[in-house]
């Protein structure tokens, strides 16, 4: 088991955003977390990353508790997040954004290789490498945000709403890239509102409703599930 959340309860401000979430992610999987606005999807990721600290429950990474560990140490352990809204650094160039992704790494050659790998994955970033992050289009910013996280060579990549605000054609190519990244050996925990897409591209899924896990199954089963169809697939 790579990651295990055990009955995690987290407050977001004064709101009890997570009311006892249990999730498991195996090495090599793509797991998705679907649910409506305010269901607690992003809070779950922020809790894993250590930005928020749960009041109860446990987060285990490779069998070790990472509750109350500083966010930068969690990155060091191999968990990287691409947060909602991309959060690239607008006044830093594309190159500087990517450099910061590799902030904790000291292996110069490995970093160089990863730059090459990322520019193969996202050729447009190579063209834009001297531009400020803020001048990129939404899709390019999303690519940059994912690329930046990959620069840390994570074992587990947390993606928060990678499809948000993107044109449909771009959404497909982003998800295609996510699949490639997974095939190259990175485990992925994906949060999405676009349930259809997320379930198509993932192995297993959790449905989260008002801070609790409502359903958990393989993605193919969830796609067939009547409840899911009604609530999230608009059928």
């Amino acid at each position: 088991m790579l990651l295990k959340l055990d009955n995690v309860k987290t407050y977001y401000g004064n709101i009890r955003a997570l009311k006892g979430i249990s999730i498991e992610v195996e090495e090599g999987e793509i797991v998705c977390l679907i649910g409506g606005n305010g269901a607690g999807k992003s809070t779950t990721l922020m809790t894993i990353s250590g930005v928020l600290t749960p009041v109860e429950g446990n987060v285990l990474y490779q069998g070790q508790s990472i509750v109350a560990v500083r966010p930068d140490n969690i990155v060091q352990m191999g968990i990287c997040q691409v947060p909602e809204g991309r959060m690239i650094f607008p006044l830093l160039t594309v190159m500087e954004n990517l450099d910061l992704g590799a902030y904790l790494r000291k292996d110069k050659n490995g970093i160089k290789e990863d730059f090459e790998r990322i520019f193969r994955l996202f050729p447009v970033l190579r063209e834009r490498r001297k531009q400020h992050g803020g001048t990129l289009s939404g899709g390019e910013q999303q690519m940059l945000a994912i690329a930046r996280a990959l620069m840390a060579r994570p074992r587990l990549l947390l993606l928060d709403e990678p499809s948000l605000g993107l044109a449909p054609i771009l959404v497909d190519s982003i998800f295609e890239t996510i699949r490639q990244i997974n095939e190259q050996g990175t485990t992925i925990l994906l949060v999405e509102q676009n349930a259809q897409l997320a379930l198509q591209f993932s192995h297993r899924g959790y449905v989260i409703e008002t801070g609790e896990i409502a359903l958990a199954d393989s993605s193919t089963e969830l796609l067939k599930n009547e409840q899911v169809k009604k609530a999230y697939l608009g059928e």
């Binding site: 930005v51 966010p71 930068d72 990287c80 690239i88 607008p90 006044l91 910061l100 902030y103 930046r148």
Partner: peptide, 24 residues
């Protein structure tokens, strides 16, 4: 410098800076 870059990153977005592994 790496440190200067980290400074600018913290200035622009503390949460994200922490998520890239910077000790804010």
């Amino acid at each position: 410098t790496r440190w200067g870059k980290a400074m600018r990153a913290v200035a622009q977005n503390q949460t994200m800076a922490a998520l890239t592994g910077i000790n804010v």
